[in-house]
Design a protein around this nucleic acid. Structure first.
Lengths: 183, 183
DNA sequence: ACACTCATGTAAGCTGTTACATGATTAA
DNA sequence: TTAATCATGTAACAGCTTACATGAGTGT
């Protein structure tokens, strides 16, 4: 079955949905966001662009550069947008890497705002579950064992709490902005 | 050159340094910590145990179980401890996954406390750099662009700030506990 | 002369996963 | 009898990286 078509492919497709770009442009864009999601190596980037083209998700236009190498500008197609929306419609898997959620943050505001809200809500539930799990673990090993484990759990808890707080804050501001008052 | 021998192998070796275990024990232990680092599939776990054995990092003792399958208990060797310490001595790479740092938290308190401090300090520097980078990015795109990017950056900033705060808090408590007062 | 940015790509390999295979014991 | 836990393992493949290859222009 395979998670199949997942990560880099979708990310690249998503960036091409923002605006048409060359492979090099994609590389630079992601390099700028490398603190958030890390940029792919050319060894994965270019092959992915080729498969996207073969699958009809993008079209190419080669622009012969004056005084510089020719650039191949990729533009997303209707089929490409459908693939992207299919991916955006399904919530991120529970153990999916952080990157997977950040990608949804980056891309989902181009579609209906409720898509973004759903992702935020889903993530909130996941992080809440994670926090609860970590709390259980902490109590389970209580005073009994090695400090390394304890410290690791505390660390995880601190991060989960902060993330949860941000998610709830953001959801609230979104609710007041779009929904207005409903009481 | 390759990062080579890195992740799962070292993690498993590290757990065997805590106490001798069977492959199944390792699996269960990591399943318990799955909220923090995620547990490996058997398809990677068992082959790694075999290579650790072939490399002389562990020894095996097969215990024929009464009424249950025989268990193969792996015990770390001196060579194994050396490999582990070599890994613990080098700081985590800047773009290394969170897991890599959590592993150091889990394992480093078995060695001198200054090893733990070095790792915490190093991580603090990395996260501080990340936070600074994200701030720069935020200012760079200022009022100009799409809200998705802005939101993703805010999210990254919130997480980085929380992590930095935890690291500094923890370093302080460690300093007062071990070093005492130095003024 | 040397190195760096622009711009594309390929080949080989590492790491890890999914899915399968085996087999015995215990609980519903 | 059906499933789950205990316990070990293999085969095939997905996904990504490192390192290389090419080639022009630009800066020091």
């Amino acid at each position: 079955m395979a998670t199949g078509i997942v990560n880099l492919r979708t990310l690249i497709l998503g960036l091409l949905a923002l605006k048409p770009m060359s492979g090099y442009d994609v590389k630079r864009f992601l390099k700028g966001l490398s603190w958030l999601i890390g940029s792919p190596s050319p060894g994965s980037l270019y092959p992915i662009l080729r498969t996207l083209l073969e699958d009809g998700r993008v079209t190419v236009e080669t622009i012969p550069g004056v005084d510089r190498p020719p650039r191949k500008i990729y533009t997303i197609t209707e089929a490409g947008r459908r693939e992207l929306e299919t991916w955006l419609d399904q919530p991120a898997a529970a153990q999916a890497p952080l990157k997977s959620f950040v990608m949804r943050l980056l891309l989902s505001d181009h579609y209906a705002p409720d898509v973004l809200c759903r992702h935020l809500g889903h993530r909130r539930d996941q992080v809440a579950a994670k926090k609860a799990g970590l709390l259980t673990m902490t109590q389970a090993l209580d005073g009994n064992q090695d400090p390394g484990q304890h410290m690791a759990l505390e660390y995880g808890l601190a991060l989960a709490s902060a993330e949860l707080a941000w998610l709830e804050r953001t959801l609230e501001t979104l609710a007041t902005k779009t929904g207005g008052e409903e009481s």
